[in-house]
């Protein structure tokens, strides 16, 4: 004989991920470290921006970058060449980084050896929005070559971001226009910083570093 029973659960499917993410955030805070999650589409310039940021920061800070990509170590190698310590996570087709993937990499290092941590998320404007990786701040990078509707089409990821970076602004006026994207980003929510950058010319890099709350001597 069996009986049927309805159990009230009320628990998030992401529970395990979110618990790990909270733990990462807590440890980073306790140790006075900064951890940023850089999201954005493929080719928006996340890696080149991180190269530029690494160049600026590594004379003063120890930087650790976790690169999420479906395959290859190209991005991690590029940023490592600028003086940061990097590790590549290959998600093997996975569309986002998750907290346990970050935790696994943090387990392999001594967090005290570094000051500032970055995760370059998998190029995607949809899935990473739902997965907390334990960062203190989410940054979304889009570039003006992605078309003028990229923010209008993908506003959800921006709702969870503290900073929207509009990249490739060196191409402004050369058949591309940053104006639309800046305007749309400004309509997402008033407490999101919108910064125009060029990872090629370093335009806006200082504003970005300042918005991250990183002090340079």
């Amino acid at each position: 004989m069996t009986q049927e029973k309805k159990i009230t659960v009320k628990k998030q499917a992401y529970l395990v991920n979110d618990e790990i993410a909270d733990k990462i955030r807590h440890i980073m805070k306790e140790k006075d470290k900064l951890f940023f999650n850089i999201m954005g589409s493929i080719g928006a310039g996340k890696t080149l921006l991180l190269e530029r940021i690494a160049e600026k920061l590594t004379p003063h800070y120890k930087i650790f970058v976790i690169n999420g990509d479906v395959a290859t170590t190209i991005d991690a190698d590029r940023i490592a060449a600028k003086g940061a310590t990097t590790v590549q996570i290959n998600t093997g087709g996975g569309c986002h980084l998750s907290a346990n993937l970050i935790q696994k990499e943090l387990d392999k290092i001594n967090i005290d050896d570094y000051d500032i941590f970055f995760a370059e998320n998998v190029g995607n404007l949809i899935c990473p929005a739902a997965w907390d990786v334990g960062a203190q701040m989410n940054i979304v990078v889009v570039s003006i070559t992605e078309g003028e509707y990229v923010i209008k089409k993908h506003p959800i990821i921006f709702k969870g971001a503290a900073i929207a970076v509009i990249n490739k602004c060196d191409l402004d006026g050369l058949g591309f226009d940053s104006g639309n994207l800046v305007e749309d980003a400004g309509k997402i929510k008033s407490d999101m910083r919108v910064i125009c950058t060029s990872a090629k010319t370093s335009l806006g890099l200082e504003s970005l570093i300042e918005a991250l709350g990183i002090q340079l001597p």
Binding site: T2, Q3, E4, K6, Y14, D18, A130, K159, G160, K189
Partner: peptide, 20 residues
């Protein structure tokens, strides 16, 4: 000018068959 409060996928209830 709003924040989005995404209520993530939640397991609400589970119906189980339990042997007596």
């Amino acid at each position: 000018d709003t924040h989005l409060n995404i209520r993530h996928l939640t397991i609400e209830t589970v119906d189980l068959e339990i042997p007596e």
